[in-house]
């Protein structure tokens, strides 16, 4: 007994110093897993950058012609990204002009107008819509939207593969994403703000549009930007329905390949390494990566900078 009391500080020290190898190994593993995502990013930037560099070193390619050329024809050594870029922009614009108004409408309805019962019924439907694989939407674009557009606008004006059909269906794909992110932002606005606005005599619409929406504007803009980045990176719908072959056109009823659609078509066959086609998908991929990364960072910054924090 006496001994233990005498040695108490000593014992405490030894307990503290006792090496716990198991704990250290586990902690090492955890740190490695934590850092793994960094390795992934480095991997993406390094691999895309390395192969893209090889692509730009090709004698047939120069950076200026790449950014401003209106022809992408690898077999005659024309590498202008514009046709791929414009078709990506056209399909995304069509998609966003569907998804933003409808998505905001759905979100405002769900958060401000719907009874809890309706909301509990509709939110899962939105989630189902968001969980459907994009290839299914591609199938829908080709077998439903394209024939529909062709009956409305005529067989001659609308190609079998066209950007309008892909864009419209992409809008349906992005709608639930924007709606659910916006709904989250609107629901986060505290009840007291709404009550105060009603107390001042506002109608339901005025409370929703002039108080709740402005209070949640950072979340809503973030939702729209995330939707945009999703539209630009969307692949299977455009690969199935928007047509094969780069085409520099602003007519949405014509077929034209997007950035993503081109990557899928080129790599669909057996691609041989170090060919100019192989390197070109890395250059296009790098471009895609930076566009979507920029949009994502902007959306995060908006949320961080302009978020109204309520108790």
């Amino acid at each position: 007994m006496k001994q233990i009391i005498l040695n108490y500080p000593e014992a405490r020290k030894s307990l503290k110093r006792r090496p716990r190898w198991g704990e250290s190994i586990i902690q090492g593993l955890l740190i490695f897993s934590g850092f793994f995502s960094i390795f992934t990013t480095i991997g993406i930037v390094y691999e895309l950058g390395k192969e893209a560099l090889l692509f730009f070193r090709e004698p047939a390619v120069n950076l200026w012609a790449f950014l401003t050329g209106t022809q992408w024809q690898p077999h005659i050594e024309k590498f202008g990204i514009l046709p791929l870029l414009t078709s990506t922009l056209i399909t995304s614009t069509i998609a966003m002009s569907i998804a933003i108004p409808l998505g905001l409408g759905v979100a405002i309805y769900l958060s401000e107008y719907a009874t809890p019962k309706t909301r509990n019924l509709l939110k899962p439907i939105l989630e189902v819509l968001a969980g459907i694989p994009t290839i299914v939407y591609g199938y829908f674009a080709l077998t439903f939207m394209t024939p529909l557009l062709r009956t409305i606008f005529g067989q001659d004006t609308v190609d079998i593969y066209n950007m309008a059909s892909a864009g419209l269906v992409m809008g349906i794909l992005i709608l639930p994403l924007i709606a659910s992110m916006t709904e989250d932002a609107l629901s986060a606005v505290p009840r007291s703000l709404r009550e105060a606005a009603y107390g001042l005599g506002g109608t339901k619409l005025e409370v929703a549009l002039k108080v709740v929406v402005p209070a949640a504007i950072s979340g809503i803009s973030a939702a729209i930007i995330v939707g945009m980045s999703r539209a630009i990176g969307e692949t299977m719908i455009v690969a199935v329905a928007a047509g094969a072959g780069p085409n520099f056109t602003f007519n949405p009823f014509k077929g034209a390949e997007t950035l993503t659609g081109h990557i899928v078509r080129i790599s669909g066959g057996d691609l041989s390494y170090d060919s100019i086609d192989y390197n070109s998908i890395f250059a296009i991929g790098l471009m895609l990566f930076f566009i979507t990364l920029t949009l994502n960072i902007i959306s995060q910054q908006i949320v961080r900078r302009f978020r109204e924090v309520y108790e």
Binding site: R230, T292, L293
Partner: peptide
């Protein structure tokens, strides 16, 4: 931040990687 950004990278980029 990096994990949030990776969640937003288009799936086709992972294919290229």
């Amino acid at each position: 931040t990096n994990i949030n950004n990776l969640a937003g990278v288009p799936s086709i980029i992972y294919g290229i990687l």
